[in-house]
Design a binder for these strands. Sequence first.
DNA 1: ATCCCGAGGG
DNA 2: CCCTCTGGAT
Length: 214
Amino acid sequence: MTPQLPYATLKQIFARFAEAEPHPKGELEHTNAFTLLVAVALSAQATDAGVNKATRKLFQIADTPEKMLALGEEGLIEHIRTIGLYRNKAKNVIRLSRLLIENFGGEVPSSRAALTTLPGVGRKTANVVLNMWFHHPAQAVDTHIFRVGNRTGIAPGKDEAAVERAIEDNVPAEYQGHAHHWLILHGRYICTARNPKCGICPIRDWCLYPEKTA
DNA sequence: ATCCCGAGGG
DNA sequence: CCCTCTGGAT
């Protein structure tokens, strides 16, 4: 049960994030809403570096639902074989492309309810698309944010839904828009799962994680 | 609770 | 070798 950091401390923490990285961006490469949606779906349990390596070539060939269908499941597998869980992902992306054409006029829908009707698109993936493409106030909780939220006390919660609520409830309003990428980049490069780099952590002064001696 | 599932890092 | 990576469906 990690305690929740007080609001005044959260303001200091996010001010520090904002100072270090005024305009944080995601690192998944994409050229339009469709390629963003596909890239996020492919990124489940995979590094974005690995996803980018595969999608760089893939999106030159298939950057629309129509082209993805033309490529086909077997053709798609050839491109994403190096990413984990590739059979499920290939099947989902093909079915998702067909559904976009049949149900949404070939466009990526802008509501969570519509997005989550697509195969391979759950609440987390939908929230990433809503935040990054449509600039909606949606907080996607991935493995990094779940870990960072609980470890630091920024947004503790027993599951992803609880952490999502904690972010919405406790992160100062002026920082909500960029909170997702600040937290994810912090988790990826500083507050790593195995050997967190507490020695160079910019928010170490306020963190509740006991192993802040490294 | 389990399965999917390869690449990269320590 | 073992652990982790912007999860989702069953």
